[in-house]
Amino acid sequence: MLTKTMRTGTGAPGGVPRGRHGWQRRIEELDPVRDHEEIHRITAGYEFPWDYQRSLEFALFRTYCVPTISELLQRTGEFEKRPQKRYDDTALLMAELVEHGYDSERGVESLRVVNRMHGKYDIDNDDMLYVLTTFIYEPIDWIDRFGWRRLTPNERLACFHFYRQVGVRMGIRNIPETFEDFYRFKAEYERTHFRYTDDNHRVGTYTLTLFCSWFPAALRPLVAMGVYALLDPMMLAAFGFPAAPRWLQNASRRALRIRARFVRLLPPRRESKAARDPRNRTYPGYPVGYRPRDLGADNDKQRGARRRAA
């Protein structure tokens, strides 16, 4: 059962624990099936908020290596015309589910927006399953490599059960029932579906340009090379991107590991950052003054009117 503070998203579940590994000890006291929402909120909002944000950026990037997915995104024109807005919509809607729970008022509202956006298109169920896998396994892989500690078995299973339940509420069919089976689906799907197409290249380029736009113009060529350095060979081939020099690959990974050693020295986080990103560009100040229903709306004036009426 979720604690009151977790359901409202106003504070740390059960209070802030003592010591750098206090949250980890709290997680070990919980059940990864029954308490998966609480565990995942602690992991993503308190222990690894920066890592989760970065890893999910690359998780979404990874889905654009699938021709049927990139073709749909290219056809809608969203990534060409409004890449920042689509990025912010996706990131904030998923963060709402983590922060408040998928069956909370804000969680139900967020899922309603997600389902409405997806309902406009005829999307293959296996494509939906694959996108769901990236939200589970990409952060796990990232944190194992670059996090200030490795994830515990409870955290891994909680992440699986959390997104499995999100998938059920999105109407995704045939979701595997075990962590291992879903991972096998992901690996086989990538093996059979990742291949180069022009749409992959276009959508990947729009996304890379978006990432670079967050930095001063003088740094953007280096940022692009840094992104190439963190993409695996399958992704580089599917996008038609060049491989970064070996020295830059090593330097990028070394920099992330140095950051992890620094973060390891910090005290436990006192407030969740799951749904609080000060760098969000589309919805300044979010979540203050916004509801999940404001996300993904096509008409900015209508969104503003709804916010004023709330």
Rank of each mutant, 00 (worst) to 15 (best):
D126G: 03
N154I: 00
D127S: 11
A187C: 11
F135N: 04
D127F: 06
E188I: 13
D144F: 03
F135I: 07
E155W: 05
N125H: 03
Q165S: 14
R164F: 03
D181G: 10
H161C: 10
D127N: 12
Y121Q: 01
R156N: 09
F182W: 12
F160I: 03
R156D: 02
P153N: 09
R195H: 12
Y121S: 05
D141P: 02
D124R: 12
D141K: 15
V131C: 09
V131I: 13
M170N: 11
T192H: 15
K120W: 12
R173Q: 06
K120T: 09
T192V: 15
I172A: 05
T197N: 06
F146D: 01
Y137P: 04
M128A: 14
W148L: 05
G171L: 00
T197M: 08
D122P: 05
F179S: 08
L132V: 02
L129E: 01
V166I: 15
H193E: 10
P153D: 04
F185V: 07
L151E: 06
I140F: 00
Q165M: 11
N154R: 14
D127E: 04
W142H: 10
I140W: 07
N125T: 07
Y189P: 05
L132C: 01
G167R: 08
A187S: 13
G171F: 01
M128V: 10
R173E: 03
F160H: 02
L129S: 06
R156V: 09
T134A: 05
